[in-house]
Design a protein around this nucleic acid. Structure first.
Lengths: 201, 201
DNA sequence: GCCCCTATTGGACAAATGCGCAATAGCCTT
DNA sequence: AAGGCTATTGCGCATTTGTCCAATAGGGGC
């Protein structure tokens, strides 16, 4: 197997294990077992476990982001883009959010992870702020501070989904989805119900 | 030292280590060293490390909650109670929030921790929902669904403070504070500026 | 067909961890 | 003063972890 393919296979295996066991609990041997190879091979390609974990998290998280960005790009009007944002965000499964919980908790102690986590969070916020700015320019949204609104909408969504993933039934996935859409409608001064899940319409 | 005092001293030491190293990274030996005793003593009082971590987290988190509850109780009108809620929430330092990040991340893997984390989150939400209901009854707040609003306000606050603690300067503490107060004002239909930090008034 | 380069193996190693246990020390009762 | 109960010690054990390294295999260039 070529070095590039091998590196890619290792990262993929690491992602699989990470989603099952969590970032902190992912071990070299787990990844090797998932690959069906030896643990020494992992270190032949990655200098340290931290490097591998950081790269695996980045790839998984960036993939989710790219999914959302491309779904946004498929829509022409700002309202459609915003709806697509919520659709793709809530379509992703719980394991993706569990990864984020791990990353946020570990961020203050692992510099490599913090940088990646922070950068990706900023990109999510930027994407959202961009939609809002377009909406304001097009006159379909009202927002005095798109950056602040983007942080608020994103943080509310994160905070609600966090409850779903960490605690189960305290808040349901559907409530987290519906409540965050409603809050966004109010935040951006758009018609109530406009952001109802496009799948359900 | 009496058993009760000893148990309490162990939990206090565990909290100190937890705030420094994080929940997952707190070891029996760390706690013993913090206490200046032996590791065997810890196991004489706590059957497992998980039990100790759960109890230490519960104590730390409950203390924060009680602080807020008593600050709320000191206020007579709902608006004052809501302002007190934000005041005490934001007065607590980052280490408290770091504990919550750890707890949320570990919740899905440690049953004892999940139960406590979930229960405490529900108590926070109940306290907030209670204030809102009083406000609605008194005619000073408008809210069709106090439970949902409480979850939204709490989750937004958590989501914003999460950014502060995990990533540093992405969002400032002051922004997290101000933005969440503004959102609450809008959510509950109360006058903008009414929730401005009471300390700053 | 031979040889070298590197991907790959499989285990060694030290450090760290939770937990248990036999021995000790210190206090309270009698 | 004696004795017993228990808090406390200090170490040992088994396990798990990241990391490293000498040995092997296998394939592509001469």
């Amino acid at each position: 197997m070529s070095p590039d393919d091998r590196r890619s296979a290792i990262v993929t295996a690491a992602r699989t294990v990470m989603e099952r066991r969590g970032i902190a609990a992912t071990t070299v041997r787990d990844v090797a077992a998932e690959l069906g190879t030896s643990s020494g091979l992992i270190h032949h390609y990655y200098a340290s476990m931290d490097d591998l974990l950081a790269e695996a998290f980045e790839q998984a998280a960036r993939e989710d982001l790219e999914d959302t960005l491309s779904a946004i790009a498929d829509e022409s009007d700002p309202e459609g883009q915003l709806a697509a944002f919520f659709d793709t965000y809530n379509r992703s499964d719980d394991s993706g959010m569990q990864l984020w919980l791990d990353a946020w908790a570990e961020a203050s102690r692992r510099p490599a992870l913090r940088r990646i986590s922070r950068t990706l969070n900023e990109e999510w916020q930027r994407a959202l702020a961009g939609i809002i700015r377009e909406g304001v320019d097009a006159g379909v949204m009202v927002c005095p501070d798109p950056d602040a609104s983007a942080w608020r909408i994103l943080s509310l969504l994160d905070g609600l989904v966090l409850q779903v993933v960490a605690h189960g039934d305290v808040v349901s996935r559907e409530q987290a989805d519906a409540w965050s859409r409603t809050a966004a409608e109010s935040e951006l001064g758009i018609r109530a119900g406009l952001l109802t899940p496009t799948l359900a319409r």
